[in-house]
Write a protein that binds this DNA or RNA. Structure first.
Length: 458
RNA sequence: GAGAUUGUAGCUCAGCUGGUUAGAGCGCCUGAUUGUGGUUCAGGAGGUCGCGGGUUCGAACCCCGUCUUUCUCCCCA
């Protein structure tokens, strides 16, 4: 017999953790619904043909692949065994676990395009799996909460996402955070303006690290990624941009030659105006020209949210939310012209942040309100009727299942933090009253059922 | 995928240069109390030292492999 163990990067959630997770999940779900999003669930397992090639070369490697059922090696030839693992994989695995919620959503939209009311707003709260190396804030199985709108180019969606992020996080009682906003078109514009069109992907990956590794190392990385000294020299304005009060003004001057870039700025300005129009209280919204995000499918707005601590410093936990607009996600499934925009909140990171900052409200554990003792068979039988009435009154209640020593029963109630115990023995059966014990104070009173129900309310 | 790091009782950890029968605190069980939890007291159970191999007269300790923990890079929620 071997000792049981968890698969790498996975966790169990006990009652206490579940109470906290449920709080997060339900808070986000309510907020999503408030903004008109409708629920969707898709299978954990997708065909690899749906998942492969959507997340780049690295993403394909991070997909959990499922071995074909049955005798998967039966049809393999000697030659097949000599293949590279990548090609061999395609012969022995046809399914995989979902890597995110956006691609399955795109698949769903394509498969149901005739019947969906467009624009379609859906939210989806489900676990996803990545064969990543676990580390701080990173797991191999984790929950995402996605909200996407597909079928409209309206920037109102972007503005509403900004609002919804604020509302979700404030409902979660995370007071300090930063919603960072950028636009992929601005990044394209910059790579045009510095004379390196087409290298925007490379540019994005490098510039994204500015706040992390600093200007010098970013420049070094750009040079390594194929940019010339000349390109980099033209990039100088970007490093001063974030310090300016009105970054858009300077940016417009700089990117004036690039039509795409100017379009990106225009979109951001409109989003800002819309957010203003909603009169969002104390917006924690910030333009960040270095925000890029690796996911290749973003084409317009890019979002990222970081949690901050009580002193408004960023918490070292990666981003708790990310998203953006993708003009042609469904294109890979053969349907062009459907634009979408969405965000994803990471429940597990939100959990870790809240734990680290001590933000969970007390009293989250759902436990039994009243426990009935089990003195002997006769008393237990008598107590069942009481138990029924307590439950009908809406209180969580249970009876100790075995007729063991009272000491053991009370000890159990104590450990489960059950606030009230009702004792029923021969005395109670004779008198018709119940003995109600307050486990916190130790106080015991003899009362009728009706009185007991009044007492356990508080 | 690359680099570093961790693993000893249910939990947190100690364990000397490789040397008898591997320890502590907390928790757990039993009793002091056959109708009373939290406190106290007395007693008790619990370990293939992550797993596999090697070196050695002798391994928790040294070597190799493997799994796992935490962290960094990469990438990401």
């Amino acid at each position: 017999m071997s000792k049981p163990s968890l698969a790498r990067g996975t966790r169990d959630f006990g009652p206490e953790q579940m109470a906290k997770r449920t709080f997060i999940l339900e808070t986000i779900r309510r907020t999503f619904q408030l903004y008109g999003f409708q629920p969707l669930e898709t299978p954990a397992i997708e065909n690899l043909s749906v998942l492969m090639g959507k997340y780049g070369e690295e993403g394909d490697q991070l997909l959990f692949k499922i071995l074909n059922s049955g005798d998967y090696s039966n049809k393999l030839t000697e030659q097949d065994w000599q293949l590279e693992s990548k090609e061999l994989t395609s012969k022995i695995s046809e399914k995989g676990l979902r890597y995110d919620l956006t691609v399955p959503f795109a698949r769903y939209v394509v498969m149901n395009r005739g019947t969906l009311p467009l624009p379609f707003k859906r939210y989806q709260i489900q676990p996803v799996w990545r064969a990543d190396r676990p580390q701080k804030g990173r797991y191999r199985e984790f929950y995402q909460c996605d909200a996407d709108v597909v079928g409209t180019d309206s920037l109102l969606c972007e503005a509403e996402i900004v609002l919804m992020l604020h509302e979700s996080l404030r409902n979660l009682r995370i007071p300090n955070f930063r919603v960072k906003l950028n636009n992929r078109k601005i990044l394209s514009g910059i790579s045009e303006v510095i004379g390196a069109p087409g290298l925007e992907g490379q540019f994005a990956v490098a510039i994204d690290k500015l706040d992390k590794i600093g200007k010098e190392k970013v420049i070094q990385e750009l040079l390594n990624r194929g940019f010339t000294e000349e390109n980099v020299a033209k990039l100088e304005p970007i490093f001063t941009l974030s310090n300016q009060a009105e970054p858009f003004v300077a940016l417009k001057q700089w990117l004036n030659p690039s039509e795409t870039g100017m379009q990106g700025i225009g979109e951001l300005e409109e989003i800002w105006a819309l957010v203003d129009g909603f009169e969002l209280e104390n917006p924690q919204l910030e333009f960040d020209v270095t925000l890029a995000r690796g996911l290749s499918y973003y084409t317009g707005a890019i979002f990222e949210v970081k949690a901050h601590d009580h002193d408004d410093h960023p918490v070292n936990m990666g981003s708790i939310s990310g998203g953006g607009r993708y003009d042609n996600l469904t294109g890979t499934f053969g349907v062009d012209g459907l634009s979408g925009v969405g965000i994803s909140l990471g429940v597990d990171r939100i959990y870790d942040v809240m734990e680290e900052l001590g933000l969970f409200p007390a009293d989250q554990i759902q436990t039994t309100r009243v426990m009935l003792s089990n003195f002997d068979k006769k008393a237990a039988n008598y107590g069942l009727k009481v138990l029924k009435q307590i439950r009908e009154a809406g209180f969580n209640a249970e009876m100790y299942p075995d007729s063991v020593k009272l000491k053991k029963q009370l000890d159990f109630a104590d450990r489960k933090q059950i606030p009230f115990v009702i004792l029923i023995g021969s005395q109670e059966m004779e008198s018709g009253n119940l003995t109600l014990k307050n486990m916190k104070t130790g106080e015991q009173i003899s009362v009728s059922i009706v009185e007991a129900l009044e007492k356990i309310k508080f």
